[in-house]
Amino acid sequence: MRTVTTARSRYGMVIDLDRCTGCGSCTVACSVENNIPPGTENVTERTGITWMRVYEADDGKSFPDTHSVFVPIMCQQCGNETPCMSVCPQNAVEVDPATGIVGQIPERCLGCRYCMAACPYHARYFNWWDPKWPAGMEAAMNPDVAPRMRGVVEKCNFCQSRLHTARERAASTGRTAIDPADYVPACVEACPQRAITFGDLDDSDSFVAALAAGDRAFRFLSRIGTEPKVWYLSSREWVRNLSDRVVARTRKENVRG
């Protein structure tokens, strides 16, 4: 007999690229919130762990006509044919049916990194090193999030610990559904420009659903068919054209993300 069925939601995010200044607050807030340790000495942008990462993209033109945009990329929380989930050999990745959040279970992960090869957004990060904080700094770890061990993959999970907290708060007041104000991921809270909006995409009253349905909204690599739950906004056409490669662009050499 099943007695409790959690109210279902489909959490999603909308990031306004016209407001992002590339300051990196989201990256840092995410790392603080999720107990991501500081990088080791010889860490690089290819071996580090940044669940939320800001890329600089441009329109492919050269000086002085270049236009650039800052693009924060984290796990896009694919809703359909979730590439990472289907490839994991031991179910260490799952899509939570109640929230739509793509969860990564580090305790289950064996570190084969197949999911990383599968993810077109490069949103998954491998722990190449043991997690290590400077002496004493463990005291400044978030008690709500467990640190991960070396040799496993991790990624953004829309700050699941904050979802936990929101559920506890709801339970303590006898509510069945959580208060949307109680569940806000760290990057959303941290963005000084208020460029990120978070909420239930299935809730037609939510701000995030309205934004995602707007003319400025687009998603990256939408043609692959993974149905990400992270949307981006821009009123600039060339920025919206960054979404897919098929939108013909002349690439200049050595464009760095």
């Binding site: 590339g22 990196g24 990256t27 790392s31 991501i36 990088g39 580090g48 990462r53 800001v54």
Partner: peptide
């Protein structure tokens, strides 16, 4: 290091 070394922010 997250924004100085582990990414190109």
């Amino acid at each position: 290091t997250k924004i100085y070394q582990e990414s190109e922010v």
